Amino acid sequence: MYFEERKNKTGKIFYVANERYVDPLTGKKKRASVVYHSNTVRARRQAERELIDKIDLIISKKQGVFKSSTLLTFDDLKRNWFETWKTTVKPQTIKR
């Protein structure tokens, strides 16, 4: 984790805590950041906790969406899609 000091257009200073993590879906490295407004030890620790929570939330969302055990083959995916699609169209369309 590393911290940066940045200025916006008006010259106001703010601080950013950055951390890199590996995206479980793609395997690529990504970056997450949290902004805090005072450069004290207490603010840095709070920013660090928020950043860890943010990364955990991102990773858990991505892992929850794609579970490899639910779909084993392309045929399973096709059948699941067809069952869902069947409820949204007319019977004549299904016959075609």
Score class of each variant (00 low, 15 high):
28 K>S: 14
75 D>N: 12
46 Q>P: 01
5 E>H: 05
84 T>K: 11
35 V>G: 01
31 R>V: 15
35 V>E: 09
5 E>N: 10
33 S>C: 13
40 T>S: 12
69 S>H: 13
95 K>H: 08
85 W>R: 04
46 Q>N: 13
68 S>M: 12
44 R>M: 11
12 K>L: 13
58 I>H: 01
6 R>K: 15
86 K>T: 00
91 P>I: 10
96 R>K: 14
21 Y>A: 06
42 R>D: 10
58 I>P: 04
11 G>K: 06
40 T>R: 01
19 E>A: 09
70 T>Q: 11
94 I>P: 00
33 S>N: 13
45 R>G: 10
48 E>M: 07
80 N>V: 10
11 G>D: 07
67 K>A: 10
66 F>P: 02
36 Y>M: 07
16 V>Y: 00
11 G>C: 02
30 K>R: 15
32 A>V: 06
55 I>E: 03
81 W>P: 04
51 L>Q: 00
51 L>W: 00
70 T>E: 14
32 A>S: 08
57 L>G: 14
25 L>V: 15
42 R>G: 11
71 L>K: 06
86 K>Q: 05
47 A>P: 04
23 D>V: 07
95 K>S: 15
6 R>H: 12
95 K>P: 01
32 A>I: 05
20 R>L: 11
43 A>E: 07
50 E>I: 06
4 E>M: 11
53 D>E: 15
88 T>W: 01
91 P>K: 07
43 A>M: 07
7 K>A: 11
81 W>Q: 04
45 R>W: 03
5 E>Q: 15
88 T>F: 08
22 V>E: 06
63 Q>R: 13
14 F>I: 02
20 R>P: 00
71 L>M: 09
20 R>A: 12
96 R>D: 10
43 A>V: 03
70 T>A: 09
27 G>A: 06
46 Q>S: 10
43 A>G: 04
77 L>K: 02
44 R>S: 02
35 V>L: 05
30 K>D: 09
70 T>L: 15
36 Y>D: 04
91 P>R: 01
6 R>Q: 10
42 R>P: 02
60 S>E: 14
